[in-house]
């Protein structure tokens, strides 16, 4: 298993390189010009040209790419064109909010979605099943920003239980940390919860009709034992797969959620960088995201072996 994990990690290097080249090329051919944005409306075309030259944006594509790649190899993601701060420092500033949001979202979603899916399958065809599925449809079909604004209106503006916006580091206390993150996590988690609840239900329905479940029932195993010990573990592989795939959706959703709740995370950093054409920041963040995706996929593959002993690498 360890050898497999190492092989997979080593295999990420060409993947990340290809992603880096792809992103760099995309940014190179995409229209837009950070020099024009820096210069502002009052600047002359000649000023814009001089700024472009001072940023090195007039150099040939390959020179710029290999310069950047060499810096990355040495652990330097470059310097933001706009803030003059190291990209690694900017990413470091933003990791905690995004990571916190994702962990809390995952925790909330999984802790609600799996019981919902299991119960819906157990009570298949009843009003409970329909209620769970209706909730799932609602979660799927309502955009994150709508849920976000609704939650902020009710729980922040009307009831004043939570703040409208912002982020407090966990180092400043668990209560203020959670107070800032609950609403965004619920807003973001609803879609994710809907997705996992549906998959859990479908998989559980399949598992519950298996012979060994009938045998367990015949042997007098209790309902809870059948659902959570015999069935859920066997339904876990597709669920874990969806959790992994959903991670991508979570990063995309985090961009919107971070904007609505003004959380200074990586999503907002990415959007700001794209709008301004802050190339080093875009490249740094995309590189980070691609590494995270690869690692999440690796984690999912390794989890398969935990839930299904027949799977071996």
């Amino acid at each position: 298993m360890l050898a497999y994990a190492i092989r997979r990690i080593v295999a990420t290097i060409p993947v990340v390189l290809i992603v880096a080249l792809f992103v760099f090329s995309l940014l190179y051919i995409a229209p837009g010009d950070p020099a024009a944005i820096i210069a502002g409306d009052q600047a002359t075309p000649a000023d814009v040209e001089r700024i472009r030259a001072s940023l090195g944006l007039d150099r040939p594509f390959l020179v710029r790419f290999f310069d950047w790649l060499w810096s990355v190899v040495r652990g330097d993601l470059g310097t933001s064109i706009f803030t003059n701060l190291p990209v690694s420092h900017m990413i470091q500033q933003r990791i905690e909010p995004t990571l916190s949001l994702m962990v809390l979202t995952l925790t909330l979603s999984l802790s609600c979605a799996i019981p919902m899916g299991v119960i819906a399958a157990w009570k298949h065809g009843t009003w409970i099943d329909r209620a769970v599925m209706m909730t799932a449809v609602f979660g799927f079909s309502t955009p994150v920003f709508v849920i976000g604004y609704l939650l902020a209106y009710v729980f922040a503006l009307r009831l004043d239980w939570f703040p409208v916006q912002g982020f407090t580091s966990i180092s400043q206390g668990l209560f203020p940390f959670l107070r800032n993150l609950i609403l965004p996590a619920v807003a973001l988690g609803l879609v994710y919860m809907a997705l996992i609840a549906r998959i859990t239900r479908a998989t559980m329905l399949d598992v519950l009709s298996q012979d060994y479940v009938r045998t367990a029932k015949a042997k007098g195993v209790g309902q809870r034992g059948i659902l959570f010990i015999h069935s859920l573990k066997n339904a876990a592989v597709p669920i874990v797969t969806i959790v992994g795939i959903g991670f991508a959706a979570l990063i995309g959703g985090a961009v919107v959620t971070e904007s609505v709740f003004a959380i200074p995370g990586l999503g907002r950093l990415t959007v700001d960088a794209i709008l301004r054409r802050d190339y080093p920041v875009i490249q740094g963040v995309v590189l980070l995201f691609s590494c995270v995706y690869v690692l999440v996929n690796l984690g999912v593959d390794l989890l398969y072996t935990v839930f299904d002993p027949r799977i071996r690498y």
């Binding site: 604004y149 902020a152 209106y153 922040a156 503006l157 004043d160 703040p163 409208v164 916006q165 912002g166 904007s259 609505v260 709740f261 003004a262 907002r268 700001d272």
Partner: peptide, 18 residues
Amino acid sequence: WHILPDAATASAALQNNE
């Protein structure tokens, strides 16, 4: 200076005395 790019969020934060 609190950067709130979303206009609705900025207005809500003002209403909520944030």
